[in-house]
């Protein structure tokens, strides 16, 4: 990803940080918290959490885990710090771009994402970057919204994306296909709402 795109992405999420908790802290968060708790309960070993945002998901993390959270936006991280401080385990936060991860190869046992790859500017490159820092056989676990295959939802999501992209995420990404393109082996895809909101579990193949 070029520097201009990186700066634009950072500025977009810095701006979104102002109202992020107001927009997402009640409806979406309470609605999906039970599913996220169950999904995150499998965290084990050294875990990378990508795009931790304002830290709304931290309340769903199981206790006593070793988690590294990253986000491109310093304003988001500023809001996440008090939530991270209250986490009963090891949780450190870093300002970092998923395309340019500053970790050694094969550093993590698992990578978790939560509504992240709807917004990463170059999703396949971002996922390849995650594969690099995952140990061979390591797990990628994603809670994501994607495009739909069904009429009229596909058309509606395609139509809304040019607007939603200005404020935050794309609504029509083929994330499951992107995970495969980045070299992961898909283990399970579970639909949570239509074929739009889903969990994806994939494995980094042994090198």
């Amino acid at each position: 990803m070029d520097e201009l795109t990186r700066q634009r992405t950072k500025a977009k999420w810095d701006a979104a940080a102002r109202n992020f908790d107001l927009m997402n802290g009640r409806g979406p968060e309470i609605r999906w918290a039970p599913f996220k708790r169950e999904f995150f309960s499998d965290m084990r070993g050294r875990v990378l959490f990508v795009a931790v945002g304002t830290g709304l998901d931290i309340q769903c993390f199981p206790p006593d885990r070793d988690i590294t959270g990253i986000d491109i936006s310093p304003k988001m991280l500023e809001k996440a710090r008090h939530r991270a401080a209250a986490y009963p385990g090891r949780l450190e936060l870093h300002e970092m771009d998923v395309h340019q991860l500053g970790f050694e190869p094969a550093s993590f046992d698992q990578v978790f994402t939560s509504c992240t790859f709807c917004s990463v500017p170059d999703p396949v490159a971002g996922l390849e970057s995650l594969r690099r820092v995952l140990k061979p056989g390591g797990e990628l676990r994603m809670f994501e919204h994607t495009g739909s295959r069904f009429f009229p939802f596909k058309q509606m999501l395609d139509l809304m994306t040019p607007l939603s992209r200005r404020l935050g995420p794309d609504l029509n990404r083929p994330t499951v296909r992107n995970v495969e393109r980045a070299g992961f082996r898909i283990r399970e895809v579970r639909n949570l709402y239509l074929d739009v909101l889903k969990t994806i579990t994939a494995e980094s193949p042994a090198r």
Partner: peptide, 24 residues
């Protein structure tokens, strides 16, 4: 649907799982 979805329903009830059927 977009105006109501982004100002009220997103905040109170959820994101795409509310906004998609409301928009339809």
């Amino acid at each position: 649907a977009l105006v109501l979805g982004l100002t009220i329903f997103l905040v109170l009830f959820g994101s795409l799982e509310v906004m998609l059927p409301a928009a339809l």
